[in-house]
Computed example of a mutant assay.
Amino acid sequence: MEHSSTLSAELAKALKTASGIDFSGAELRAIGGGCIHRALEVRAGGGRYFLKLNDASTLPMFEAEVDGLTALGACDAFRVPRSLAWGATEDEAFLLLEHIEMRPLADAGDGQRFAEALVELHRDSGEHFGWTRDNFIGANPQSNTQDDGWAHFFVNHRLIPQLKMARATGYAGAIGREADHLLERVPALFLDYRPRPSLLHGDLWNGNAAMDVQGRPVIFDPAVYRGDRDADLAMSELFGGFPSAFYATYRTAWPLAEGYEQRKTLYNLYHVLNHLNLFGRGYLGQAERMIRALYFELRR
């Protein structure tokens, strides 16, 4: 896809058809930070917008994102960017979002407000684990076939697909029998722990969390499904960046059950395997260590 300082006539026409906004002569500013889509701040028709672009074949990713943002926005715990238009031309898929002025979480007050919002989101629970449609975790597909059993869901729709991808890529020797034995033992982690199917962001690292200029928590770039709330908390710890007050506030409002540290490693294994499949061998050692630690812990 060509990168230019103006929108193509075809794209501007498609955006106008989808949104009713005239994008001819729009002012564009490239926004960095994403590793999947091209992102632009766009000024047009007297408004300011956030525009994501990619090849036309990626439209299902944008459709899944709209679905996830809609689900998160319906809970009203966080400020979530509104989806204004999406579609595709012959060459480009696009997603037009509300533009929100944001900043990173910076202090205890931010951490407290973000935790309070996350507790409210997680209290939105359903009847089944999974989601009404499949979506994506980064650029990889994420299966969300609904299931009544959390351990069964996590093994079959989180770990097994990632392990299959890793082995198909050439990591079969490194991620071998210990991983298979681990899958057999995962249900042992949930003999005395029955999580509810909470609404999850699904990819809650610090790059997908912020505060708006009014001090309201913001989340975006979701990989939504219903699952154990600990999975969101575990992901928030994987790469750091959340104030300590976030964890203290969350645990005070809704204490975690015993065994969280083991579950955290299991849940983050999914994301580390996904990073291995997306970005390569740099994540292999971390994945192997996590598999080995869980395997030996659960064989006791």
Rank of each mutant, 00 (worst) to 15 (best):
Y250Q: 01
E261D: 15
L294I: 02
L278Q: 14
A287R: 09
Y260Q: 05
R263L: 11
R289V: 01
Y270S: 03
L294F: 02
T249R: 14
L278F: 04
A287S: 11
G259A: 12
R251W: 15
L284Q: 04
E261G: 11
T252C: 11
L273P: 07
L269K: 06
R263H: 13
Y260H: 14
L284R: 06
Y295F: 11
L256H: 02
A257I: 06
Y283G: 01
L273D: 04
E297I: 03
A253C: 11
T252N: 13
F296C: 00
R292L: 09
L273H: 12
A287H: 06
G280Y: 13
L276V: 07
K264H: 13
T252Y: 15
L266Q: 10
L269C: 08
L284A: 04
A248M: 13
G259T: 05
P255Y: 08
L278K: 02
H275N: 03
K264T: 04
L266W: 15
H271S: 05
L269Q: 04
G280L: 08
L278M: 14
A293K: 10
E297P: 00
E258K: 15
R251N: 14
Q262K: 14
T265L: 15
A287M: 05
M290G: 00
F296R: 12
G259I: 08
E288C: 12
Y260P: 03
F279C: 02
Q286Y: 13
R289M: 07
F279N: 02
Y267W: 14
G259V: 06
Q262S: 13
N277E: 05
R281L: 02
V272K: 04
L273E: 08
Y250D: 01
A293C: 01
L276D: 08
R281N: 03
Y295G: 00
L266M: 12
T252P: 01
G259D: 05
V272N: 04
G282P: 04
R289N: 09
T265Q: 14
A293G: 04
W254C: 06
E258M: 12
G282C: 07
Y267S: 06
Q262C: 10
E258G: 14
Q262V: 09
T249A: 12
L266I: 09
M290R: 04
N268Y: 15
T265M: 14
R263G: 09
L269Y: 10
